[in-house]
Design a protein around this nucleic acid. Structure first.
Length: 790
DNA sequence: CACCCTCGAGTTCA
DNA sequence: CTCGAGGGTG
């Protein structure tokens, strides 16, 4: 275990060790620390003896706090960091001693650990075990006490022995009965459950809080805790009203019963049925299964479908269903042996904000983004997250050097939520938005007065913008040139002092020749050592440094590589004496010594082939404001050639379906710029036709109707037999409209596996949903064929 | 004047 | 894939 070196009280000195800890290691270490701390407290308070020095003891506490901050999922309500000397933290709420100790649950963090636990329980039980699986709600544990069926008190868990009395507030939670239904309740019963906000309610609540200038809660759990632990005294009528409104929106689900002699039920699931009869809220999501394998499947299912549940879940609890086995298996001092909590990987983690860097996009917009210590969130490793603009940086309140909370919004997009202020040590510094473009030095300014976004006005010359535009030109939405991606675009547009870049602007794209590529060398910095190395020799790195030291952000491999045509006879390479022809700084003496990598050759061929792509793709490639694939198709279809578009007046342009005055102006304005026209002229000179062959001329109606004329279809997910683009093309080829988002106007949604929010939306709106087979039938035979046989 | 839609940007993975 | 911004359409 990693504990011997790190749990030694020198908490602050162990940052490095902490950062490289896995969750499992941290959990192990935290468990050990907890045990030591609790032992020390027992010894101190009950036996009046110290087993560790004060220094050691403080060190353990400090280290445990540190671990809990780095791994918030390790925090539990009865952690020694939440309590003082074995007593619940002093609060405004009266202490309540639970009739029976509220145990916590042991945690597992992987299916392997779960299997091991289940196997052990199975062995110890010695007979068939049914498993009850339920969702672990991320809320606040509450103990309800009913005397003769009447609610007499409600308390938080506290340290498990003594909690806080929140009875008055709990009485306002609608789902909690003041009096149990039915008869036959024991004279005194304690019911355990979880109080929480549903995700949707939480969002509403936060919106309300924000609108009223109140604090916004970080997550539903905090909100529930905060709402339940507020005091009505000394509050204005309005504040009291707000407090009651919040309490009214809380939900509760019960999942257990405290001490109970001779219960009239034999299993946990029967207990739930009984609780339900009494009018207590029980979850609808639990299931009893007869094998541990099925329990693992339940865990996996909700791991994939966390969002399908109305409340936040941080895991699954698996319990032995048979109550007699609970007694036989017993409990440790902290947790029962007959139940386990499986914790899902957290959606929120803490990591270090190393720097805030500004990148310039293809439109010149300056976007600050966070560079963080690489960390695993929701299944992938994250290093960067956008901060949008300077105002967002400010409003999030993050400083460079902060420990920050990171999550994946919608499980995909990394988002910095905010700093962990308590972890600051004074070395943090504020981010200052640069005044000049980090890539070309031009002073940044807003595009128009009052804009928050700053832009680099040097559209023509700024390498970042040229690079971005080239990427866009070659991108999937435009000319779709394979082999010309982020790295290639960077390499091609980077000046090679004293020479010019092979492509100082996108205008030269189709004039690019093989010899232009020879001087290019891409050096990629090794992410571990920080040393430059040649791309292609090993795994590609994350950061690219060009010859003049400019650092670029890189994702993929590059097609360019210096290569010798043939090995020279009689010479050996040694590490100490490399072949001079591989000296990156050595003289370059013509193309005889080098050939292009096959990737680069292919790229050149792909560029050549791109000349014959559809006109609308070229319109997109030209990068006219507001002209994306849809507007480009409309313009191309109507006018048939760029020449006709160029000759059109504002009114003529705006007459096109889907094009209005603004787009018309944008087109006209675009042609006003000299270097824009140069792009068109040079591409045309290189052989780009800029016309649809056989097009009758301006004003031609859109292609005569296919089977889908007047029908709008949205394709989502992976449809077998189609690429995403292919599906859209197929829809349009059949005369239909391929929309990108689902709305009331949508006639069909073709959804394959992996479809997300669009499918949900379609279901909400009651729009017919087709699978791949149905989609093919729709394309072939039209809407009626699909409507008849749904 | 409401919607509804498209655009544009950022991000990671298989 | 998702969000905000801002355009177009009914």
């Amino acid at each position: 275990m990693a504990t011997s070196g790190t749990a030694d009280g020198r908490a602050d000195a162990s940052d490095e060790a902490t950062e490289s800890l896995t969750l499992e290691q941290a959990a192990d270490e935290a468990a050990l620390l907890t045990e030591r701390i609790l032992n020390a407290r027992d010894a101190y308070y009950e036996k009046d003896a110290a087993i560790y020095s004060d220094e050691e003891y403080d060190g353990y506490i400090h280290r445990l706090e540190q671990l809990e901050r780095l791994f918030p999922e390790l925090q539990s309500q009865d952690s020694p960091t939440q309590t003082v000397g074995g007593r619940a933290e002093t609060t405004l709420f009266a202490p309540v001693t639970h009739a029976e100790r509220m145990l916590s649950l042991d945690n597992v963090f992987s299916l392997d650990e779960f299997d091991a636990w289940a196997a052990k329980v199975q062995r110890d039980a010695g007979r068939h075990v049914d498993w009850l699986c339920e969702l672990k709600i991320d809320g606040l544990a509450i103990n309800l006490r009913y005397r003769d069926g009447v609610l007499v008190s409600a308390a938080t868990r506290g340290d498990g022995v003594v909690g806080e009395d929140v009875t008055e507030n709990i009485r306002r939670v609608p789902s909690i009965p003041q009096r149990l239904a039915g008869t036959g309740h024991p004279p005194l019963v304690e019911v355990r459950g979880e109080v929480y906000f549903e995700v949707a309610t939480f969002r509403e609540l936060n919106a309300m809080q924000a609108a009223e200038g109140e604090r916004v809660f970080a997550n539903p759990r905090n909100a529930a805790s905060g709402s339940l632990r507020q005091v009505g005294e000394n509050k204005s009528a309005a504040a009291l009203e707000r407090m009651h409104r919040r309490l009214k929106r809380l939900s509760m689900l019960v999942h257990g019963i405290g001490a109970w002699q001779d219960p009239p039920v034999a299993s946990q699931s029967e207990t739930y049925a009984l609780l339900k009869e009494w009018g207590l809220p029980t979850s609808t999501h639990y299931r009893v299964v007869d094998t541990a394998k099925k329990a693992a499947e339940y865990i996996a299912y909700y791991g994939e479908n966390r969002d399908s549940v109305e409340h936040e879940i941080d895991g699954v609890v698996v319990k032995v269903d048979e109550l007699a086995l609970h007694d036989e298996l017993g409990a440790t001092s902290r947790a029962p042996r007959w139940a386990i909590a499986y914790k899902y990987p957290p959606e929120q983690v803490n990591t270090k904000l190393l720097d805030i860097v500004v990148s310039i996009g293809r439109t010149g917009r300056a976007t600050p983004f966070a560079v963080m210590q690489k960390v695993r969130v929701a299944g992938s490793e994250v290093r960067q997250a956008t901060l949008h603009n300077q105002d967002v940086v400010k409003s999030k309140g993050v400083l460079i050097g902060d420990t920050v909370v990171l999550r994946k919004a919608g499980d995909v997009i990394p988002e910095v939520l905010g700093p962990v202020v308590e972890l600051r040590d004074g070395s943090e510094r504020e981010f200052v938005m640069p005044q000049t473009c980090p890539e070309c030095g031009t002073p940044l300014r807003p595009a128009k007065e009052g804009d928050i976004d700053l832009r680099c006005p040097n559209a023509r010359g700024c390498p970042a913008q040229v690079r971005g535009r080239l990427e866009h030109v070659a991108g999937r939405g435009a000319l779709d040139i394979e082999g010309l991606g982020e790295v290639a675009a960077a390499a091609l547009t980077q000046p090679m002092h004293p020479q010019q870049a092979p492509l100082p602007s996108e205008a030269g794209l189709f004039d690019l020749r093989a010899q232009d590529l020879f001087p290019i060398e891409v050096i990629v910095r090794d992410p571990e050592t920080g040393l430059p190395r040649q791309v292609g020799e090993e795994e590609p790195g994350r950061e690219l440094i060009t010859r003049d030291g400019v650092r670029l952000r890189v994702k993929t491999d590059t097609p360019f590589r210096r290569q010798r045509k043939a090995p020279l006879p009689g010479r050996e390479h040694t590490a100490s004496r490399p072949d001079p022809r591989f000296d990156p700084d050595g003289p370059f003496d013509g193309d005889d010594d080098f050939i292009l990598s096959s990737a680069a050759t292919e790229m050149l061929a792909n560029i050549e082939a791109a000349k014959s792509k559809d006109l609308w793709r070229f319109l997109v490639a030209l990068n006219v404001r507001h002209v994306g694939p849809v507007a480009a198709r409309a313009l191309a279809g109507w006018f048939g050639s760029l020449k006709a578009i160029r000759a059109a007046s504002r009114e003529e342009l705006a007459a096109v379906d889907g094009v209005g005055e603004i787009i018309a102006d944008a087109v006209l304005d675009w042609f006003e710029v000299d270097w824009h026209r140069e792009i068109v002229d040079r591409w045309a000179a290189a052989g780009v036709p800029f016309a649809i062959p056989g097009h009758p001329g301006p004003g031609a109606a859109a292609a005569a109707g296919g089977v889908l004329t007047g029908i709008t279809v949205v394709a989502t997910g992976s449809l077998e037999g189609f690429t995403r683009e292919g599906a859209q093309e197929a829809i349009m080829a059949a005369g239909g409209k391929a929309a990108s988002s689902v709305s009331k106007k949508t006639d069909f949604v073709a959804a394959g596996p992996g479809a997300g929010s669009k499918l949900t939306k379609a279901e909400e709106l009651g729009i017919p949903i087709l699978d791949a087979a149905g989609f093919k039938r729709l394309l072939a035979d039209g809407p009626d064929a699909v409507r008849e046989s749904p």
